[in-house]
Design a protein around this nucleic acid. Structure first.
Lengths: 405, 405
DNA sequence: AAAGTAAATGAATCAGTAA
DNA sequence: GTTACTGATTCATTTACTT
């Protein structure tokens, strides 16, 4: 783990290294802006300038450095070039020229979800990473992911053969039974990567602008290097690449033109903080609690579902006295007064004067005070109305029968 | 709906059209391959040649045509240019030059899942669509999607203010309660679109190579045009753009250099086959279809769903005078008396004395006799009850204000 | 007019704290 | 220990306004 201060254009040749296994390049994106950010305690401000006279000036800047970087790579080495839509086409031209079109391996899309107030456009939610190898003989570790739930796993395990017209068909043995053919391990990793954006509250955050998540770098490093290999980041910024390399037992060299960035990288390597994304581990499903069929009861009224609150299932888009109206659908096995209490408790701090509770069943309560406050309006689900109706009809029926006899 | 045979370079100027609202360009991607595919019955083989002497030859081909296409656009018009990683950088250069960098709106990633046995690489799972407008004053219909389940919906409805150090914080009233601030509608559509690849077994498939799903085109068309607008596809191929435009009540012009493609497009327009996605979308727009709504609305009462009956959606398992009770859920745009009539007509042969109609909306009737027979019991869906409640609350609110003055 | 600066915005996520 | 729920934070933003 070495961190150098200076411009990679000058630093790299002086290091005389020719056996880099992976270079991750995360240069300025040509945003024509000055980027600034501070640590949370506001003691240090980090910044870098991304303003250029022209596209060609930017292109020249990249071109010079990419040539030096190309030289430093081992024959089995790879380059990952991170950029966004503003200058990806320029980078692609240069990379094709320097590495050769034949060594262009993949265009990786890093897809994430973000907050923004965009109105008259699509919300930007991706960046691009170009993957080039130095030669045809490049190191690559196949990563397999799970099959999609819709995949007919049983069938893809079966042996295949060709019929008379040379069409590929699934094979059968003499008894007409399917024949299995070894095991399958999964689906190769795709070139679209859904990795959460570095969260505003994440501990991993250093205060350096444009910081990338460690997980993204870990995936790149694991894809094309083995433990002990050497990783280079010529624009190392906050040092994410080095932290990721360290966590995966790879060696790494970082270079940056900012003294603050170099200091930060060194500090991070001593005390690495890697946030374990709950979202990545558990997936979105872990957040879903409000039942979808339950919410479809609200059909016809505009509402926003709430997924993270045990008391409130949705807010109506209409407001009452300026406050959105919380809605709860009575849960299975829950009495109406219990439901009302849960709703009121969850809504108490929200200043709501009107709440709506959808009743789905008559459940006797064990609750000490079985009254429902005035602020909670109870609306019956049709199922409940019908149930009561049926009971009533049955009564009428019986009395009718009695009258006849 | 017009389909022209020929090269758009020659055909477009001869059409003398200057008010195209949307052009979708899906040219050869510079794959250096001859693309062939046949219809399932193998009677027709479609093919097009995508082999080029050099990148610059390909660039010249595009450049000439893009200039003509640019001229044909209305001032509020947009261009969507479909390509993949092999030549996206060339296209971007040309588009920046012809449309102006300032009119580059978005780089859309069409992400799909596809099976492949790619071994020493990532699985290609995306294509790129560049979105350019002719001017700053372009037509754009904001599309909103649902919030992520992890979103703190409670909080984003709250008003914000600035504290002493000018930091943005959530506001509280004098009692320490949160203050709400209007309503939210949802998240703007992102620039990464997860749309399934045209299924190998889809009915929608025509046998034309590189056929795109209709759903993809529908999304593009809805994003930047209104009904009645004019859509152009200068490389129309199998005619997907025209089929999508037709389904959304837009006019369209298609051009192709292949006689077979032109014939296929004309044939598809007469008998459009749109698989699932379209149905799915229509269903969503109409707030789900009756079956699903019926299912969830009846939750709690045992019932048997009925398919293929225009009047009855389900039968309750309970009986009245020995006859199962038919249930209908009021359809969208259907008045209650119309619904009751349909229900009674369908149930007449069933000898039913009691029917249940679930009301979902107040729709004024055009029906001669707007009465509902006694045998039909009307039960309100919660959505309707809430709608009426909201209207009532609004009235109270207003009268309250009057009383104060 | 173009360009540059200041202000407003927005939703996704994890860190805390409370239960 | 767990498991809720609340709140803070951003910003390779976007928009509005001023030079």
């Amino acid at each position: 783990m070495k961190v150098h201060f200076g411009d990679c254009l000058n630093v790299l040749p002086s290091l005389r290294i020719g056996s880099i296994d992976l270079t991750y390049v995360d240069p300025p994106f040509c945003t024509q802006r000055q980027h600034r950010l501070s640590t949370r305690d506001r003691t240090i401000e980090y910044s870098f300038d991304d303003r250029w006279k022209s596209l060609s000036e930017y292109g020249d800047f990249l071109s010079e450095r990419l040539r030096v970087i190309h030289l430093a790579l081992a024959p089995t080495g790879s380059l990952f070039f991170h950029c966004d839509k503003t200058a990806s086409h320029i980078a692609k031209f240069l990379l094709d020229e320097i590495f050769g079109t034949a060594n262009f391996r993949a265009e990786i899309i890093w897809h994430y979800k973000r907050w923004s107030n965009s109105a008259r456009n699509l919300l930007p939610a991706h960046q691009t990473i170009f993957f080039y190898s130095k030669t045809d003989n490049y190191k690559f570790n196949t990563v397999l992911t799970d099959y999609s739930p819709t995949t007919n796993v049983d069938q893809i395990l079966q042996r295949r053969t060709r019929d008379q017209s040379n069409k590929s068909v699934y094979d059968r043995d003499d008894n007409g039974n399917v024949v299995y053919n070894g095991t399958k391990k999964g689906v190769p990793l795709s070139d679209v990567w859904d990795i959460p954006f570095l969260n505003p509250k994440a501990k991993e955050r250093t205060g350096y602008p444009t910081q990338k998540p460690v997980f993204l770098l870990q995936r790149i490093i694991e894809l094309v290097t083995d433990p002990g290999d050497l990783v280079l980041d010529p624009f190392c910024g906050s040092g994410t690449t080095l932290v990721a390399a360290q966590s995966l037992m790879r060696e790494a060299i970082g270079i940056d033109t900012s003294k603050e960035a170099v200091a930060l990288t060194k500090k991070r390597l001593k005390q690495p903080v890697i946030t374990e994304s709950f979202l990545l581990k558990k997936g979105l499903k872990a957040y879903r609690n409000a039942d979808e069929t339950a919410l479809s009861l609200l059909n016809g009224v505009p509402y926003v579902p709430v997924h993270r609150n045990n008391g409130v299932d949705a807010f109506l888009k209409s407001t009452y006295k300026g406050v959105p109206i919380p809605v709860r659908v009575q849960k299975h096995g829950e009495s109406l007064s219990e439901a009302a209490a849960a709703l009121r408790k969850a809504a108490s701090s929200k200043n709501a004067h009107r709440m709506i509770l959808i009743a789905i069943d008559d459940i006797p309560t064990l609750f000490p005070d079985p009254t429902i406050p005035d602020s909670v309006v109870v609306v019956n689900a049709p199922g409940l109305s019908i149930k009561r109706l049926l009971a009533q009809m049955e009564l009428e029926d019986q009395s009718g029968c009695h009258a006849e006899t």
